[in-house]
Amino acid sequence: MPNSSQSPAPEAQAHEPRVVAFLCKWCSSAGSDLAGVSRIQYSANATPITIPCTGSMSPLYVLSAFNKGADGVLVSGCHPGDCHYMEGNYLARRKLYLVKQLLQFVGLEAERFRMSWVSAAEGAKFAEVIDEFVGDLRPLGPQTRLKAKH
């Protein structure tokens, strides 16, 4: 399968990655609130969408985001064992692992999809997760593999 983004063009270096961050309401969204309350600065490249639980993530959300031009997709939930709804995040982990494999199979860089566990008490970690992800996405340049061609 040809991969159009294998060697990023020079101007791709300047590309600012656009990230969709799916945050579960109870842990990661609350963690992002804590980052805010603590005024921890991080990259503005990720826009959050709050969902009830990572267990409610449909694989289609991930595909849809890439299709609409996202350079990276993050799913962040409660730590394993701490899910507000008991086991939603285990469900998510199993399911999204398959999504990751599917994405690789269709030729997308594995680095473009990430899952993390951020609790309501981990404001600093939330900021780190975003900064790290955006930093890792930068060298990859724009995502064109799954982006809809107009």
């Binding site: 969902i51 409610s56 449909s58 399911k95």
Partner: peptide, 8 residues
């Protein structure tokens, strides 16, 4: 309203 059902 956790949506575990939605995910599956």
């Amino acid at each position: 309203g956790c949506g575990s059902c939605v995910g599956v």
